[in-house]
Nucleic acid binder design. Structure first.
Length: 820
DNA sequence: CTTTCACTACTTTTT
DNA sequence: GTAGTGAAAG
C-alpha cells in the first residue's frame, strides 16, 4: 500500500471497484458498501447519526452520501459539509469530484472556521463590521490578553495571560458573553476573567479582529439575531453534513442547529437534512472544549434521529481490534461498540520493556531496521507515536545515529515560527491598520529604538484619546504626544514613514512582492543575514519559503479568478434554494476567498490553514514521527508507540482525574486503531524528565491488554520485579508473573483513584513523604528526601541518594522503596 | 533602550 | 533540557 497517510481511506481498500466517473448512477455508488454503510448513504427524511468506529469507512460513507444526493437531483449548491481540518475538507471535496465531476465544486466543503469567515465576511455589513477583519490565533489572543492584564494591573503570577485566555476561550465556546460570565463568576479568578473578557472583546472590535472562538460565536449570534440571514442560509443549504462530530464544542453544536433550523421555525422553512458522523471513543479534544455530549445525546437533541453504527473495520487485524476493544471497554458510561474485521488474526502485539528511554528508542529503531531489511515494510509504512512532543527527541537521536530516514510531524509549526509571524504581522498591519496586536508586535522588530517605555506612552495616549493604537502612533510621530522623549518620537516618525511607504508598495504589487519589500525595507532580512547564529539561517529559509507560499497563492488565485458570489441575503431575495442554481457548469470557486482583495485573502488563508504541509506526502520513504493527537485520522501498516508508562501515558496530569483519564484511554484507543498489521507498544522503566531521572510504573493501559494478544519481547527484569516491599501501600506478591504484577498494581492504583475524595491517599497507595525523611530504595540504597511535589496520584519526591545521585520518583504504585 | 543572565515552568492543540 | 519571561546591568 503506497498511501499510508491518506485520511481514513479504509473502506475502499477491500472493495476495489472504481467509482463511476460520469453520470453517477445511484446503484453504482452503493456497490461495495456493506449494509450499514449503504443505509447511511441512502437514509433520508430525518437527522442521521453515523457512529463510525475507527477504520469503518466513514469518509467513504460521507462522500458516497454526497454523491448519492447529487445523483438524486440535489443541487451541489444546496450542500454544506463541515470538517475540522482543511486537509479533511480538501480530501472530501476531491473524492466527491472524483465521483460526480467538477460541479461538486459548488458545494460548501470547508472547516467550521472557514465556513464562518465566509459567512461573516459576506454579512459584515449587517454586523457593522469591516469585512477585512483580522483573524487572531491563540498567540495573538494571548498577547492582547497580556496587554489588558497589564493595564488592569493584574498579578501575572496569579493570573497568567495563558490561563486567562483558556478561561475566556471556554466561555466563548459556551457562548457566554462577558456580562453572563460576570454574573456567574463564583471566585476571584472567574471575576477577573470576566473583567478581562469584557475588555478583550472590546479591544478585538477596536482592532477589527476576531479570534478563532469569535468566528463561531459571532456567526451563531448573527444567525440568532438576524432571522432573515438565518432564513437565507436555511433555504440555501438543504443538506448539512458534519464530520468528526465528537469533536464539536457547544458553540459549534449550536451553530449546526441554527444552520439546520427546526420544525418550529417561524419562517416556514423545513429543517435541512442533517447527517453527522463521529465516534465518541475517538474524542481526544475535550481539553479544547469538545464535548462528547453532542454525539451521545444526538438522539435526544433530534428526537426523529436515526442512528447507524458502523462496526466492520476495513483497516486492522482482529488482534489489533481486540486490543483496542479491550482498552476502550474500561471507560465508564460508554455505549458499547465492538469493532470486527474480516482480515484475520494477524500478528500479536509486540510489547517491550526497556531500561530507559534510550533503550526504548534503540529497540524501535532496530526493529524498524530489520522490518525494512526483511522486506516486510518500507519506511513509509511505519509510524512512531508518542504522547508529548518532547519524546520525539530521543527517537530522533537514535534514528540519526542509525541513519534511518524520518520526519517529525508537528512540534513548532511553520506558521507559529517567530519570523513567519513577524512577517505576517507586517502584512496584517498593511491590510488592517487597526490591528493593534500585529502593530505592536512589529513596532520594534527589528529593533528601531522604540522601547517598552515609548510603547506604553503611546498606548496610554490611545486610551485617553479613545483612538486606535495606530492613530496614536501617528499623533506621536507628529509630536502631539508630549510625554514622549524626542528620541522615541523620531524613532516613531521613522516607523510611520516606513509603514506609509510599504503601504504604497502593497497597493501596487502582489503579496509575494510586497512581502519581499517588507523584509528588505525593514531591515529584517539584513539583520538575519548579518547574524552568525545558525538558527537565523533557518529563519531566512523560512521567510523565503513564506514568499514562495505567497507567490503560489497569487498564481493559484490568478489562474482561477473569483466569480462573483451570489450576494448577501441582505440584498438578495431569500427565495434562494435556486439562488445559485443557474449554470451548473460554473465552478463555485469563491470557496474561501473574498473576491476583491488578494492580501486579505492570503492572510485569511494562512490564518486558517494550520499547516497542511506538516503531514508528509506518501512516497518520501521516511518513518513518520508524531504525537498521538496528530495521528488521529491516519493509518499505517506498522505502528510503534513508546512511553506506555503511568505518568507519561496516561499523562501525569490525567492520573488523578477520571474524566481526563478516560480521555487518555481514548487516546490509547486511537493509537491502537491506527495500526493495520503490526503494533509495537513499549515502555521504559526509567526516563529523564526535566533533566532529572524518573522511574515510572507500567501504563495501566498496557495491563488492560489481554495477555494472549501480546508478544512480550522483553519484560521487567526479575530482580526489579520482586522487591521487598515494606511500606504502607500493600504487598505486591512474589513478582513471578511480571505483567500480572503490573496489572495488580494498576488495579490498586485504579481503586485508589476512585477513593480519592472519600478516603484520601494516606494508607492506601502513595508513600507519604516529606522533606528530610530518610528512605531506603532497592536500587539506590539510602537517601534523604529533598522535596516533594504534587498530591495524590501526582505525588513525586526528589530524593538525594548520595553516591547514587539525586532522583525524582513517583510515589504512586509499586515504588521499590520504604520510609525509614 | 538594549543586552544579559538567572529563574521558572513545563500536555495534548484540528482552527 | 529549553524556551520564554523578568529584573538588573550596560
Amino acid at each position: 500500500m503506497s498511501a499510508p497517510l491518506d485520511l481514513e481511506f479504509n473502506g475502499d481498500r477491500p472493495q476495489a471497484a472504481a467509482p463511476a466517473r460520469s453520470g453517477p448512477d445511484p446503484e453504482d455508488l452503493l456497490a461495495g458498501l456493506n449494509p450499514q454503510q449503504r443505509e447511511a448513504v441512502t437514509h433520508s427524511g430525518s437527522p442521521l447519526l453515523v457512529v463510525a468506529g475507527a477504520g469503518s469507512g466513514k469518509t467513504r460513507v460521507l462522500t458516497s452520501r454526497i454523491a448519492y444526493l447529487l445523483a438524486g437531483g440535489v443541487h451541489p449548491g444546496q450542500i454544506m459539509a463541515i470538517t475540522f481540518t482543511n486537509k479533511a475538507a480538501a480530501e472530501m471535496k476531491e473524492r466527491v469530484v472524483d465521483l460526480v465531476g467538477r460541479r461538486a465544486n459548488m458545494m460548501w466543503v470547508s472547516t467550521f472556521h472557514s465556513m464562518c469567515v465566509r459567512v461573516l465576511r459576506r454579512e459584515a455589513k449587517t454586523l457593522g463590521l469591516s469585512s477585512n477583519f483580522s483573524i487572531y490565533d491563540a498567540d495573538d489572543s494571548k498577547r492582547l490578553i497580556g496587554m489588558i492584564a497589564r493595564e488592569q494591573e493584574l498579578d501575572s503570577k496569579r493570573y497568567p495571560p495563558k490561563q486567562l485566555g483558556i478561561h475566556i476561550s471556554n466561555l466563548k465556546n459556551e457562548l457566554l458573553t462577558p456580562e453572563e460570565a460576570a454574573e456567574r463568576a463564583g471566585n476571584d479568578m472567574e471575576r477577573k476573567v470576566a473583567q478581562v473578557y469584557a475588555a478583550y472583546r472590546r479591544r478585538l472590535v477596536d482592532s477589527n479582529a476576531m479570534d478563532f472562538d469569535d468566528l463561531i460565536m459571532r456567526t451563531v449570534e448573527l444567525l440568532q439575531n438576524h432571522p432573515a440571514v438565518a432564513e437565507y442560509y436555511r433555504r440555501r443549504f438543504r443538506h448539512v453534513l458534519v464530520d468528526e462530530y465528537q469533536d464539536t464544542n457547544h458553540a459549534q453544536y449550536v451553530l449546526v442547529r441554527e444552520l439546520v433550523g427546526t420544525e418550529t421555525a417561524e419562517s416556514g422553512v423545513a429543517p435541512a437534512e442533517l447527517c453527522v458522523v463521529g465516534d465518541a471513543d475517538q474524542s481526544i479534544y475535550a481539553f479544547r472544549g469538545a464535548t462528547i455530549r453532542n454525539i451521545e445525546e444526538f438522539e435526544r437533541d433530534y428526537p426523529q434521529a436515526r442512528s447507524i453504527p458502523l462496526e466492520q473495520n476495513y483497516r486492522s487485524t482482529q488482534t489489533i481490534l481486540s486490543a483496542a476493544n479491550a482498552v476502550i471497554r474500561q471507560n465508564p458510561n460508554r455505549r458499547d461498540k465492538r469493532l470486527w474485521s474480516e482480515s484475520g488474526e494477524g500478528e500479536r502485539i509486540v510489547g517491550y520493556v526497556a531500561d530507559n528511554e534510550h533503550d526504548e528508542a534503540a529497540f524501535v529503531a532496530n526493529e524498524i531496521d530489520s522490518l525494512v531489511d526483511r522486506g516486510e515494510a518500507t519506511f513509509n509504512d511505519i509510524a512512531v507515536f508518542y504522547r508529548t512532543n518532547n519524546q520525539s527527541r530521543v527517537f530522533e537521536e537514535v534514528f540519526i545515529r542509525l541513519g534511518l530516514p524520518y520526519r517529525v510531524v508537528g512540534g513548532v509549526r511553520f506558521y507559529e515560527r517567530r519570523e513567519v509571524r513577524d512577517a505576517l504581522a507586517y502584512l496584517r498591519v498593511l491590510d488592517n491598520p487597526d490591528d493593534t496586536v500585529s502593530l505592536r508586535r512589529i513596532l520594534n522588530v527589528p529593533k528601531r529604538g522604540i522601547g517598552d517605555r515609548a510603547e506604553a506612552v503611546v498606548a496610554v495616549h490611545a486610551e485617553q484619546e479613545r483612538i486606535s493604537f495606530g492613530a496614536a502612533l501617528r499623533e506621536a510621530a507628529k509630536g502631539e504626544v508630549p510625554a514622549l522623549a524626542t528620541r522615541a518620537r523620531n524613532a516613531i516618525s521613522g516607523f510611520v514613514e516606513l509603514l506609509d511607504e510599504l503601504h504604497a508598495v502593497a497597493a501596487a504589487n502582489d503579496v509575494a512582492e510586497t512581502l519581499d519589500t517588507v523584509l528588505e525595507r525593514t531591515g529584517y532580512r539584513g539583520e538575519l543575514e548579518a547574524s552568525d547564529d545558525p538558527q537565523d539561517a533557518t529563519r531566512l529559509e523560512n521567510l523565503t519559503e513564506l514568499i514562495t507560499v505567497a507567490r503560489e497563492f497569487t498564481e493559484a488565485t490568478a489562474a482561477a479568478p473569483e466569480p462573483a458570489d451570489e450576494g448577501s441575503p441582505s440584498d438578495a431575495a431569500p427565495d434562494a434554494a435556486s439562488a445559485d442554481a443557474g449554470d451548473p457548469g460554473v465552478e463555485d470557486r469563491d470557496a474561501d476567498l473574498p473576491a476583491d482583495d488578494s492580501l486579505s485573502a492570503f492572510l485569511e488563508r494562512v490564518s486558517l490553514v494550520a499547516d497542511a504541509d506538516s503531514l508528509p506526502e506518501s512516497g518520501d520513504g521516511v518513518v513518520t514521527l508524531m504525537t498521538l493527537h496528530s495521528a488521529k485520522g491516519l493509518e499505517f501498516p506498522v505502528v510503534f508507540s513508546g512511553g506506555w508508562e503511568d505518568g507519561v501515558f496516561p499523562h501525569n496530569r490525567a492520573l488523578g482525574d477520571t474524566t481526563e483519564l478516560a480521555e487518555e484511554r481514548r487516546l490509547a484507543y486511537v493509537c491502537i486503531t491506527r495500526a493495520r498489521q503490526r503494533l509495537y507498544l513499549s515502555r521504559a522503566m526509567m526516563r529523564s524528565a526535566w533533566g532529572q531521572p524518573m522511574t515510572n510504573p507500567a501504563s495501566r493501559f498496557l495491563t488492560e491488554l489481554p495477555e494472549e494478544l501480546m508478544d512480550w519481547r522483553r519484560v521487567e527484569p526479575a530482580d526489579r520485579a520482586a522487591p521487598q516491599v515494606r511500606s504502607t501501600w500493600g504487598s505486591r506478591g512474589g513478582g513471578a508473573d511480571r505483567t500480572g504484577a503490573d496489572s495488580a498494581q494498576a488495579r490498586v492504583a485504579e481503586r485508589g483513584m476512585r477513593s480519592t475524595s472519600a478516603k484520601g491517599w494516606k494508607d492506601t497507595i502513595a508513600l507519604k513523604l516529606e522533606a528530610g525523611d530518610k528512605v531506603t530504595h532497592d536500587k539506590y540504597g539510602l537517601g534523604t528526601v529533598v522535596s516533594t511535589e504534587g498530591e495524590g496520584a501526582r505525588a513525586t519526591a526528589t530524593i538525594d541518594f548520595g553516591a547514587s545521585g539525586t532522583v525524582k520518583l513517583m510515589l504512586i504504585g509499586s515504588v521499590p522503596m520504604a520510609k525509614l
